[in-house]
């Protein structure tokens, strides 16, 4: 177990490091002049100023020196200053992180719980009306691009309901959890659903397939013939075995989750990390992009390690080696 953990952590560090190099490389080969960009129209008037700023930012130094500086600052928790707003990147991230976290965690809970529940329901009664409905839902969910779904939800649940006099769903924006939990949830319901549906569909199919397979196995039939209550059999025996591939799938989905969050934030005007990075790209605000990408990479790596551990807890047959 410890050996496994060490190995996983080592590969995790390797992955993050590789990503930092790639990110850095991407922005180093960028065919543009940051100083010129920052100074805007001043640049044209004053070549001297361009050079000063270039020097200030350390952009005139060789690539490895820049990378060393970058790493060094990274280790001290200093992510630099936004080229655009001139605020420290750390404080920008601090402001945006709760929004993305609220969105992602909420959506993940919804899709896993709802997806597995619907999957179990349709597996216990295969070919029933519920099963067909679940299948239809999964099919549509899988084929709906996140942003189309989000905009359609906005159109119907915000705009059309507003026209009808129902003003429950806001059209976007964010209220911090600490400020007003009710408002917080109200503002996030539509984004949660938007982000959750596509992944939920995958879980419905996965759970259904796995459950059908497990429920057909001998030991489950034995449990049933022993007289265990069907519900108990379903959950104790069926679901536990079915959870392993579900957890694996969750590990794969973590990277997808972040991508979905970017789109969802864009649709609902949530100023989270995703929207911040899209804006940073538009503004060529490199320190912000680098920070967000690295943060996301660390998050994905950590999440995958957690998933691997969960995997071992759930399935005693998996020996971590």
């Amino acid at each position: 177990m410890v050996r496994f953990l060490i190995r996983r952590l080592l590969t995790g560090v390797l992955v993050v490091w590789l990503i930092s190099v790639i990110v850095f490389a991407i922005f180093f080969i960028a065919p543009h002049n940051v100083a010129q960009l920052l100074l805007g129209k001043f640049a044209a008037q004053n070549q001297q100023l361009v050079q000063t700023v270039t020097k200030q930012l350390g952009l005139d130094q060789p690539i490895w020196v820049q990378y060393a500086h970058f790493l060094n600052r990274l280790f001290h928790g200093d992510l630099g200053y936004s080229y655009y707003s001139h605020e420290p990147v750390t404080s920008l991230i601090k402001a945006a992180l709760p929004i993305t976290a609220s969105l992602a965690i909420g959506a993940a809970i919804i899709w896993v719980v709802a997806g597995v529940l619907i999957g179990v329901l349709s597996a216990t009664r295969p070919r029933s009306f519920t099963d067909r409905l679940a299948t239809l839902f999964a099919l549509i969910g899988l084929s709906f691009p996140t942003f189309v779904l989000g905009l359609l939800l906005l159109y119907f649940f915000f705009y059309q309901l507003h026209l009808a006099g129902v003003t429950f769903f806001p059209g976007g924006g964010y209220v911090p959890l600490t400020q007003n939990p009710g408002q917080w949830a109200q503002h996030l319901i539509l984004p949660w659903i938007t982000l959750a549906v596509a992944s939920m569909a995958v879980y419905v199919r996965l759970t259904r397939g796995q459950m059908l397979e497990v429920l057909g196995e001998d030991y489950v039939r034995t449990a049933r013939s022993k007289g265990l209550r069907p519900l108990r059999v379903t959950y104790r025996h069926g679901l536990r075995a079915a959870l392993v591939p579900i957890v694996t799938q969750f590990g794969i989905d973590v990277a997808t989750l972040l991508g979905g969050a970017i789109v969802t934030e864009q649709v609902f005007g949530l100023n989270g990390l995703g929207r911040m990075s899209v804006q940073a790209v538009t503004n060529q605000d490199e320190p912000v992009i680098i920070a967000v990408v690295l943060l996301a990479a660390v998050f994905v790596v950590v999440a995958n390690i957690v998933v691997d551990l969960l995997y071992a807890v759930l399935d005693p047959r998996v020996r971590l080696s």
Partner: peptide, 22 residues
């Protein structure tokens, strides 16, 4: 396989955006 793991654990949409921006 390690290489594939790295690519798979990229937050790809974010990366795609960053790459296109450059």
């Amino acid at each position: 396989s390690r290489l594939m793991d790295v690519v798979l654990s990229f937050p790809f949409l974010l990366f795609a955006i960053a790459l296109v921006s450059v």
